[in-house]
Design a protein around this nucleic acid. Sequence first.
DNA 1: ATAATATGACTGACCGGTCGGTCGGAATAT
DNA 2: ATATTCCGACCGACCGGTCAGTCATATTAT
Lengths: 193, 193
Amino acid sequence: MNKKQLIIEAAIKVFARDGLEKGKIADIAKEAGIGKGTVYEYFRSKNDIFKVIEESVFSDFSIVFEELNSSTLSPTKKLSNLLEQGIDMFMEMGDVLLIIMELWAQAGRGHVHGSDSSLFVEYYDNFRKGVESILSDGILSGEFRDMNKEGVATLLLAFMDGLGWQFVILKDSKKINKIKSEAIESFMRGISN
Amino acid sequence: MNKKQLIIEAAIKVFARDGLEKGKIADIAKEAGIGKGTVYEYFRSKNDIFKVIEESVFSDFSIVFEELNSSTLSPTKKLSNLLEQGIDMFMEMGDVLLIIMELWAQAGRGHVHGSDSSLFVEYYDNFRKGVESILSDGILSGEFRDMNKEGVATLLLAFMDGLGWQFVILKDSKKINKIKSEAIESFMRGISN
DNA sequence: ATAATATGACTGACCGGTCGGTCGGAATAT
DNA sequence: ATATTCCGACCGACCGGTCAGTCATATTAT
């Protein structure tokens, strides 16, 4: 079995439970059933582990997004599916959201694991551009009203993130599912023609 | 001059810059121009400082919210003002958002500064209820479509938070202002009748 | 004079990262 | 076949730096 992956999974568990700073390498090792030194055979440092977790989360998102974006669905369908699947992904992530939240705060602080540019900024720009192009298509086809595309794209991202954060506190999946459908309904109404 | 307040302001500056864990008491003291020991004359512990910051943020929000909610404006006006003012507050908070984000993650983790119930849960429930009652009024008056009130109320909170988090990364107030008006427009359309 | 307040040197717990050493198994020699 | 050498994954004791919180002393206020 791939030990690097094993360590990452243990790390996610530990960081989600204890936080990025309080989560100890020793505990990650214990969780993975290996010695502490072994962790350092696979990762240079604690920050390195953060980075790998961050990348894996975003790559999951990107895959779903690219797949959807390159489909032949109508703009309306594309966007509502994006919301639906995005929210589902957040819900499935569970405690990983807590890690993302902390990483995000780090990104906002501008000194992310040593380097100064953040994956967050990069990926979000990318998502935003993708959403904007769907909006353009929808405006052309007459499905969507005319609008400030960048604003609405940001709004869509904000919606998804915000719901994710609400879930962090609510932790009630029945309630959340009702909220989800209402959210999608409201958003689509807000931009439809 | 109130030294407690002085310390809180210094603490906010330091925590926003360095994060809750990495932010040092010694730096807070230096920032406030006092000795480290003096901090402990006014606060029992680092966690105690967190708690006070959290309370002060929420109480600011509550004041704005209560004032607006008890006004005689129409439901439509109430909600759009709430969005407008809420977003403005987020923007003014600047780096304080980073602190809130970390506190939120702590809250989600469920062991917030020792105690197990979180101010976040409490306050959000409160806001949600307030928004739900505005929505009820608006549905009765025919301004809003019929809807799952709890869902839309959650959505509104998610929306505001989500925009706040986007700002954390965007940091471009001109762009943000355009986004803000488009966001409010879209949201209000989404629930209007 | 003495109470109240301020201070920063000090302490001890904590933890990320290191490094010398172990050990099972693979490769090679006999 | 089996003895010998080699390899590198694995380990955890240890080190060095850090920092929250304490406390004996100093300063200021009454």
